[in-house]
């Protein structure tokens, strides 16, 4: 890797020296290695089937990209998922509210929960890390209060969304929903004024404020987005698993943040792309599927996920240094960190 980079910007096209291209390269390598050992990796139906397992993380990662680019973090996303899932299931099963309207109510509930985060962060100027750490416990706790240690089953017609394919194709609904929203959010982040505001805020919140960016509103918006997308992920998860439980998606925020950071977003804000997050999500999916096929237990996979997150950031630092180096010298090498 060093040699290729060391030739500097004169011989390496700009698009190759981006974090996204590294993620893409890693994805190709991971896929190639997996396919070499496990022939099933070349079976499209198998891959499409497995993809559904990662769409909940994917949806949350799309919104988390906005949150992180804006210079914040949302540790409560997985807890919002659990609370929305248990609330909807409780309303339907215990109070008899019809499920269909509830499915459309879910994003509103998610927006409310995310909005609470956003308002506290924006209006009081408290670090999002501490605020969402608190609401992570709070929302998960409320979900536990609602259902205790019980599972609530959902009606048959509602379950199994991942087995429903778009007419005439093999594409499962969650994957199509994810890809469609990824394109939409990519356009919002990179082609609209709102997206520019998000980047401006993450680069320098103070400067953004003086430039007339409505910082408070943008902050609240990104947290509301995170809540809405967590709620959508909740609907997919309870449909996929057929039950709602308070401990659904426990610790999943780790995977979500890993995907965004691995996709080249800076945890300090101001840098990141939706494409990068999507690529990183598929990288994580390939790695975890690979480990699953190789019979690595789920509990052990936490070690790999954690290590991957750290390696991703170390590589990002290396890149930042490389960019600085090329900017000052015109050429240079990635000196490792």
């Amino acid at each position: 890797m060093n040699e290729v980079l060391a030739t500097g910007r004169r011989t390496v096209p700009r698009w190759m020296a981006t974090p996204e291209s590294i993620t893409a390269a890693l994805l190709v390598v991971a896929f190639g290695v997996s396919a070499a050992f496990v022939p099933r990796f070349l079976d499209a139906a198998y891959l499409l089937d497995r993809s559904s397992l990662y769409m909940e993380v994917g949806l949350m990662a799309l919104a988390m990209t906005f949150v992180i680019v804006a210079g914040h973090i949302d540790l409560s996303c997985a807890s919002i998922l659990a609370l929305v899932g248990t609330s909807i299931a409780t309303l339907h099963v215990k109070l008899g509210v019809p499920l269909l309207p509830l499915v459309f109510l879910a994003p509103l509930l998610g927006a409310l929960l995310g909005g609470i985060n956003g308002v506290i962060v924006a209006q009081l100027g408290l670090p999002s890390l501490v605020v969402t750490l608190a609401t992570m416990a709070l929302y998960r706790g409320l979900a536990q209060v609602l259902l205790g240690d019980h599972s609530v089953s959902l009606p048959a017609w509602f379950t199994g969304i991942e087995r429903v394919a778009i007419a005439g194709t093999l594409l499962p609904v969650p994957l199509v929903l994810f890809l469609g929203l990824a394109v939409a959010l990519g356009l919002v982040l990179h082609k609209t004024v709102f997206g520019t505001w998000v980047f401006a805020m993450g680069t320098n919140a103070e400067a953004a404020r003086y430039s007339g960016v409505p910082v408070a509103q943008v902050t609240i918006s990104v947290f509301v987005m995170s809540g809405v997308f967590s709620a959508m992920a909740a609907m997919i998860m309870i449909s996929r698993l057929g039950v709602a439980r308070y401990d659904h998606a426990l610790g999943l925020e780790l995977d979500v943040i890993t995907a965004v950071v691995l996709g080249g977003a800076s945890i300090f804000g101001g840098r990141g792309t939706v494409t990068g997050s999507v690529l990183a999500l598929f990288l994580i999916a390939v790695l975890q599927t690979g480990m699953g096929v190789a019979n690595v237990k789920a509990e052990y996979q936490a070690t790999a996920s954690g290590a991957l997150l750290i390696v991703a950031v170390l590589m990002g630092n290396c890149f930042a240094r490389f960019r600085k180096w090329t900017a000052s010298k015109g050429e240079g090498s990635c000196s490792g960190s």
Partner: peptide, 27 residues
């Protein structure tokens, strides 16, 4: 090491090791 010398933000480094060390407990 990661935080002070690797310039990894504290939340990311320790969130990573939160998962990594817990996995090691199982291993």
């Amino acid at each position: 090491l990661l935080i002070a010398y690797g310039n990894v933000p504290a939340i990311v480094a320790t969130l990573g090791t939160l998962g990594a060390y817990r996995g090691l407990v199982h291993i």
